[in-house]
Nucleic acid binder design. Structure first.
Lengths: 117, 117
DNA sequence: CATAATCGTAACCGTATGGTTACAAAAGCC
DNA sequence: GGCTTTTGTAACCATACGGTTACGATTATG
């Protein structure tokens, strides 16, 4: 039987699903870092980090610069816009919830007025 | 050897990693739907959808209302705020890219100094 | 040239994931 | 009480995931 064989870490959504990969992005977001510098910050082995880096790279989230034997990485955030855009309609929801809270507060203030305001 | 055994679909990030689950959220975001109504929209079996629903439920993304034998689901978007908040600093990146393209060009020039072009 | 340093990859391992089919529970209907 | 509808879950399967150790490629350095 032929089963579907598409990787589940493809794309930005899959890339940021793993907390280690999010932490890597949070690192290279601030400053350019070498692969070794990045790996040294995590409790797992360097090859494990290298695999995470490959996922991030294939998602288009990293820029690579080679110098000598080192590879320096910086963030390429553009692929994250897909997540941001998907999230946009949901942002309206909790914005509406704030409006709702505002209404509740106003009603309570009208029902039992506490102090001058 | 005891290996770590934490599920990778836990939390909002894992929940939205799967495209089917995102599509389910996009459905219940618009209107309340029964489990069957949801499942009917996808080319996979109903139990497969039921498992996705469980992941979404455990991530706190669904509200359930039972009526007769049916279960109606609506969105509870609050858990998505974690994603939104993690994304916030990155949003600044492409906002800056839109507002001040010149600065971005300078930063890139600093990052990888001039290959012939 | 030999050696060390840096980095990616291959091979392997145990668990999680996403799918299936089969079955059980609960409520409406004859 | 039986029967159907709706739903969730259990058991199972193939593959992806995240980790490890071993190894190879590349480059600077003595």
């Amino acid at each position: 039987m032929v089963t579907k064989a598409r990787p589940r870490t493809e794309g930005a959504f899959g890339a940021i699903a793993d907390p280690t990969r999010r932490a890597i992005l949070d690192l290279v977001r601030h400053r350019e870092m070498s692969a070794g510098d990045i790996a040294r910050r995590f409790p797992v082995s360097r090859p494990a980090i290298a695999k995470h880096m490959r996922v991030l790279r294939q998602a288009g989230l990293l820029r690579e610069r080679r110098e000598a034997t080192s590879r320096y990485y910086t963030l390429d955030p553009s692929a994250l816009q897909a997540v941001d855009q998907w999230l946009a309609p949901y942002r309206l929801f909790w914005a509406a919830r704030l409006v709702d809270l505002k209404r509740v507060v106003e009603e309570e203030a009208k029902a039992k007025p506490k102090k001058g305001e």
